[in-house]
Design a protein around this nucleic acid. Structure first.
Lengths: 211, 211
DNA sequence: TAGATTGTTAATCGATTAACAATC
DNA sequence: TAGATTGTTAATCGATTAACAATC
């Protein structure tokens, strides 16, 4: 796995996985790169190139086994892993994340939730009792935690990130605009910038109108 | 504006905007492409190429005016526009979106919220009384709406999308896995796929360990 | 004027697409 | 065997980076 795969390819993997899961649920057994490409909105060439980065999963004259390929991508993504995560921030966004995400099938397990708002501390979320921020360090000392989900505004992340880093957390799923990777280059950060996405929509709408 | 700008450039615009806003707030008046590049984690060449897609905003020997450039990107993105949007789904995610996003400074205005859960209908969100799904069509007939924010699971989107399309809505900010652009190619769709992002984090963690 | 830094052209690099021999 | 479709190499396309003349 030391071959360097471009980020473009990596970001397509979850989509392959998603569509294959659907096909599998529909009882489809085999699929050709051409058909998979049309579902993915890509070229057959791209599909074959993408997959061959990781191995020869197809069979000439036949195509790919839907469930076989899905399982392979499962392994490539490492969805069978169980990274231990804590959630920082139990506001609307934190609750949405905790409620909607099926972490277990995404390679993670949510072990604890922290929040600074006293009104929220002590209430339950996804079967977990919400803890005060002051407990982060002691919790991380007692439990193995490698990942943090940050559903907090930039300012709060700025105030809390050092604690998390010092507690040994190197993997971040970050909804804030705080630039974690800049401050700590040895971390792996995946950002979800919802407002950037909405701005992009705004641009594309206007671009479309101005043509 | 008919020059075709690549999506890579477009997706960097919100980040330029964000960093320039910060610099402006810090009282910084001018910036060179080199410094902006280091903030953006890019090359000075890329910064200059990106910006020159839209105009010559800099000045030789000086650099770029921070607030001037920010205003230009504002205009390029069309953040001064006021697209009229409705929110579909007032669960945790919908509430997070409605609560956290500063739509007014992102080119949108949220005009109404719809939900099917009877327990939620009638409660307030961002100053709006949540309406039942059954009112979508009549609402869209009486008001000008061009955008829908979809914080609903795939199944619900599948059931509701035809209504929205028939009501004339062509712009979608989509949190679900329903492929709107495939069904309606004349729409503009911006997807936020949180689980894809988390899978990508999972991959990158494992890749890092396997080296 | 000299120094700094842009705007822009040219060079490089990498990703996507096309083509086709291999083979199921 | 013939048809289908992969795996893979080669060609193309586009994005990024480098270089430098223009100019503030």
């Amino acid at each position: 796995m030391s071959k360097n795969i471009s980020i473009q390819v990596i970001r397509r993997l979850p989509r392959y996985h998603r569509f294959l899961k659907e096909l599998e649920a529909q009882g489809v057994e085999r699929i050709s790169s051409t058909k998979l490409a049309s579902i993915m909105n890509a070229t057959a060439s791209q599909v074959r190139q993408d997959l061959n980065n990781f191995g020869g999963f197809g069979q000439q004259g036949y195509g790919y086994s839907v469930s076989g390929l899905k399982d392979e991508i499962d392994k490539i993504l490492g969805l069978d892993k169980k990274h231990h995560a804590i959630l920082l921030g139990a506001g609307n966004l934190g609750r949405a994340v905790a409620t909607h995400m099926n972490f277990e099938s995404l390679g993670f397990q949510l072990d604890a939730v922290f929040e600074k708002d006293e009104k929220i501390i002590g209430t339950m979320l996804r079967g977990l009792k919400i803890c005060p921020d002051s407990k982060i360090e002691s919790y991380c000392k007692e439990h193995y935690i490698d990942t943090a989900f940050l559903s907090l505004p930039k300012k709060s992340v700025s105030a809390i990130i050092e604690k998390l880093y010092n507690a040994g957390i190197r993997y971040y799923w970050n909804f804030s605009h705080f630039d974690i990777a800049k401050k700590y280059p040895d971390t792996i950060v995946e950002n979800v910038h919802m407002s950037d996405s909405l701005m992009t929509l705004c641009y594309r709408i206007n671009e479309n109108k101005n043509i």
